[in-house]
Design a protein around this nucleic acid. Structure first.
Lengths: 237, 237
DNA sequence: AGATTGGATATTGTATCCAATCTTCCACCA
DNA sequence: TGGTGGAAGATTGGATACAATATCCAATCT
C-alpha cells in the first residue's frame, strides 16, 4: 500500500509491468535516496549497465520523470536531477496550501476504518523512527501520510498533482524535519488532524492542515534563504 | 508566440528540437483537430509511417502525452486518446477556478504593453472568427488568451499546470462555445477582464475571471450530462 | 450450441546498431 | 602568454532488428 503511494507507476499487477516503468521507479528511488544529487547529470549508459537493461527503456523513463518534475533534460545534452530553487520551493508549498485543504475537505468525511488504520500505522512508525534519524524514511512517511489523507477525495487529477508536488518537494521537506523541532511538531499536528477527522470536526481538520503546510513552508523558506544555499536549483540554463 | 503557448514543448530554438518533441506536437495537433477521436487507439506503426520516422521517437512522445493527460496507455495494449468523463471535466474546471484567479492576481499588475497588444490581437481575431465557425481556432484562441493573461505571474509550475488543464479541456470548452451564446459571452467577458487589468482594477478582473470559468463549467456540465453523452470518457478499463 | 484450447497474426516492448551532436583538449598562431 | 580551431572521444538521438505479449479465429471438446 505504501509502495503504491510512493511509486506512482506501480499500479499494474507486476506481471505486466514494463522495463521502462521499473527503470523509472529505480531512478526515482536513487533521487530520493540522494544517490543522485541535485544538478547531477544522469548518464544513460551507466544506468543501463547498473540495471542490466538497454538504454531504450531508460530514455522512456527519463521522459516520464521529466514530466514528474524530478529531472530536467536538454536535447543532446542529457538529463540532470532537478533541484528546486528557493522560489520554486515556495511555489510548490503555496500550491500544496491551496490544493490539499480542498482535497481533505472532500476526503475526510469519507475515510474508512481501513484508512484510519493505515494512517495510525504510518503515525506509529513515524513516532518510532523519531530516534533512528533515518531521514529518508521520514520523508516517505510524511508523503504517505498526506496522500492517504486524501485517498477518498475522488478527484484523481488533483490527487495526482498533489502526489507530484509531494514527491518533488520531499527532499526539501526532510530538511525542515531535521532541523528545529520540525519532526516533533509534525508528529503532533498529524495526530491532531487525524483526531479531528475521526471526530467529524472536518473544518478544524482542514484549517489545521492548511496551517500545518503553511508553517512548514515558512520554516523551510527561512532555512533555505538564510542558510544561503544558492546552489540549490543550480544546473539550470 | 502563440505557438509557444499552445505547444508546451516548443521552448527550444527549433534548430535543436528533437524528433520526439516534433512527434508529440504532431500527435497533440491530431488530437486537437479531432483527427484522432476520444478513445481511439493510437497505432505506433501508422503514426511513424505518416510522419516518416521510426517508432522510437513516437513512443517517447506518447509517454510525454500521457503525462499531459491527453493519452492513456496500457502495457502491451497501446495508447488511446484520453477523453474526459463528465466528472473529470468538472474536476478540471474546478482546478482552473482555483488556480487561474491566483495567477491573474499576481500577473495582472505586471502586464506590459506587449502583453496587452498580444491580448488585443487575440481578442480581435476571436471576434473576426465569430462568423467563420472555425471551431478549432476558437479553442486555440481561448487557450492562448488565458495563458497570455498569466504570462507575468512568475509561477512556472502553476502556469504549466494550468496550461495542461487548458489543453486537456480544450476540446470540451469548444462544445460550450459552439452551443448557446457561449462564444458571444466569452468575447464580452474576455474584453472586460482585459479592461479591468488595464485600469488597475485587479480585484474586479480576478472576480470576473473566476465567475467566467465558473459559468463555463456550469454550462458545459449541463450540456454534457443532460445531452446524455455517456460515451465521453469511454475506452477506459 | 457454447466454451475452450491452440496457433496465426498484429502490436507493443527491448536491444542493438548507426548517426548526429556536444565536449574536451591539444596543437597552433597572433 | 593567451586565445582559437579543430580533431577525437564521449554521449545522446533515431532506426532497425528481434523478442514478448496480446488479439483474433478456427478447430475441438463437452
Amino acid at each position: 500500500m505504501l509502495d503504491r503511494i510512493l511509486s506512482p507507476s506501480r499500479k499494474q499487477p507486476l506481471s505486466r509491468r514494463t522495463t521502462s516503468t521499473t527503470a523509472a521507479d529505480e531512478i526515482r528511488k536513487k533521487i530520493f535516496d540522494g544517490e543522485l544529487r541535485d544538478g547531477q547529470p544522469i548518464r544513460q549508459d551507466i544506468l543501463a549497465a547498473e540495471l542490466g537493461i538497454s538504454r531504450t527503456p531508460i530514455r522512456e523513463a527519463l521522459v516520464q520523470l521529466e514530466a514528474e518534475g524530478l529531472v530536467r533534460s536538454e536535447p543532446h545534452k542529457g538529463a540532470v536531477v532537478a533541484g528546486l530553487s528557493p522560489t520554486e520551493i515556495e511555489e510548490t508549498f503555496e500550491l500544496r496550501e491551496l490544493l490539499e485543504p480542498m482535497l481533505l475537505k472532500t476526503s475526510a468525511p469519507r475515510l474508512t476504518e481501513e484508512d484510519f488504520a493505515e494512517l495510525a500505522s504510518i503515525l506509529k512508525e513515524y513516532s518510532g523512527e523519531l530516534r533512528t534519524r533515518n531521514v529518508r524514511r521520514w520523508g516517505e512517511l510524511n508523503t504517505a501520510f498526506h496522500a492517504t489523507l486524501y485517498a477518498r477525495a475522488d478527484r484523481p487529477q488533483t490527487q495526482a498533482m498533489v502526489a507530484r508536488l509531494l514527491n518533488s518537494s520531499d527532499r526539501y521537506t526532510r530538511l525542515q524535519l531535521v532541523m528545529t523541532k520540525g519532526l516533533r511538531r509534525a508528529e503532533a499536528e498529524h495526530a491532531l488532524i487525524v483526531d479531528y477527522c475521526r471526530k467529524g470536526q472536518f473544518d478544524q481538520a482542514v484549517d489545521l492542515l492548511r496551517a500545518h503546510i503553511h508553517h512548514v513552508k515558512t520554516e523551510l523558506m527561512r532555512y533555505v534563504t538564510k542558510a544561503n544555499k544558492p546552489k540549490a536549483g543550480a544546473g539550470r540554463k
